[in-house]
């Protein structure tokens, strides 16, 4: 076999035969972006390639002057010596797996992905490949997501409970992706829905891309506190400890994240309630996706690398860890730093 299709460099995951990087963490000449979250899409590169659906949200992160090319899901582009295509990852709007092929050898980089249903983005498609680079944010068997329906019932019940005692309901969730997924699942007959500015600007991008979301109102300084006592307000996690919440009057807060499955993590957020809804695949989701690719070699990034690698090896696969700078374990942190840039 010749040199590997992708190698890890100081700037990120690099494809020598195509001379491009995937989600580089330093500025490069050509960057292929799996999705617009802060730890994957960093500013400063000369040109970017994104799935068509993701251009609008990526533009929001990179600013008006970034050079962004679009590629529809499934279309193939020849880049020097390799054929490249992007395929839905089911993570957020426009999230893509990157398929790279050279002389019949196929590598797929998953980016972040989930297998649970989400009406605001195209579902994850397993792609056959020889080498699969997978994330492992929730790569331990303790992580098994409850059904979405159950979670939405919990959120609705919480909302009604708070209405009864005249409290506003504030749902803290990642402003890009998670917030829109929640919005799309809410029962709008319960009460009005308000959004923090960071969430609102992402909603606009989603709507521009053709995703339908229920009507929402932006929280402004002029909005009177009384407006909130029956309302549900969507805000980024960083807003929880900011003076912004003072605008809302008395409220009960809920935090939406896969980490909320663990009681300790829930306690630490100091919110009234935790709701288990994640943008990432759970343990069964990771394993079934890896299996569906048919890959003989799996490179694991992002999260619980060591146990995942060992588990796959015990199942007879060739597996290695890949030390990237994607912040799997600290997802909450990256989510926060992202929402700050958007406020």
């Amino acid at each position: 076999m010749s040199a590997p299709l992708l190698t890890l460099t100081d700037a990120g995951l690099y494809c020598p035969d195509g001379d491009f990087f995937i989600d580089p963490w330093q500025p490069v000449s050509r960057a292929v972006i799996t999705h617009a979250h802060a730890d994957h899409a960093r500013p400063g590169s000369a040109s970017y390639l994104s799935a068509q659906d993701g251009v609008s949200v990526l533009r929001h992160r990179l600013g008006p002057y970034a050079q962004i090319d679009a590629l529809p899901y499934g279309d193939t582009q020849q880049i020097i010596g390799v054929r490249l295509s992007l395929h839905p990852a089911g993570h957020i709007l426009g999230s893509a797996q990157v398929r790279v092929e050279r002389g019949g050898e196929v590598w797929v980089v998953s980016g972040d992905y989930k297998t649970a249903p989400d009406p605001t983005c195209r579902p994850f498609e397993p792609i056959r490949c020889h080498t699969f680079v997978t994330e492992s944010t929730f790569g331990l068997p303790i992580y098994r997501w409850p059904a979405e329906q159950e979670i939405f019932e919990q959120i609705h019940a919480f909302w009604r409970e708070n209405q009864e005692v005249g409290l506003a309901t504030v749902i803290f969730a990642y402003s890009l992706g998670k917030a829109q997924r929640i919005l799309a699942g809410l029962d709008t007959s319960i009460g009005p829905i308000y959004c923090h500015g960071a969430v609102d600007s992402m909603n606009q991008r989603y709507r521009e891309t053709g995703i339908s979301l229920p009507p929402t109102t932006l929280v402004t300084e002029e909005t009177h506190k009384d407006a909130f006592c029956r309302a549900l307000i969507l805000a980024p996690p960083s807003a929880q400890r900011s003076p912004w919440t003072r605008r809302l009057g008395d409220y009960a807060g809920g935090f939406v994240s896969g980490w909320m499955l663990i009681r300790g993590a829930r306690r630490r957020r100091v919110v009234e309630r935790g709701f288990v809804l994640s943008d990432h695949a759970d343990w069964p989701g990771l394993l079934s996706s890896i299996e569906a690719t048919g890959a003989q070699r799996v490179l694991v990034t992002h999260g619980h690398i060591v146990p995942m690698v060992q588990w796959l090896r015990e199942k007879g696969l060739e597996a290695h860890g890949l030390q990237t700078r994607f912040e799997g374990e600290l997802d909450e942190v990256s989510e926060e730093s992202e929402s700050k840039t958007n406020v």
Binding site: L140, P141, I142, R144, R263, G264
Partner: peptide
Amino acid sequence: AAGIPDWLFLECYSAVGDMAETLALL
């Protein structure tokens, strides 16, 4: 009972930090 090897159980325990909860999750 969870159908996983001991080493993986211990990894899970170290992530959760509480035996009762680790068991319930697994």
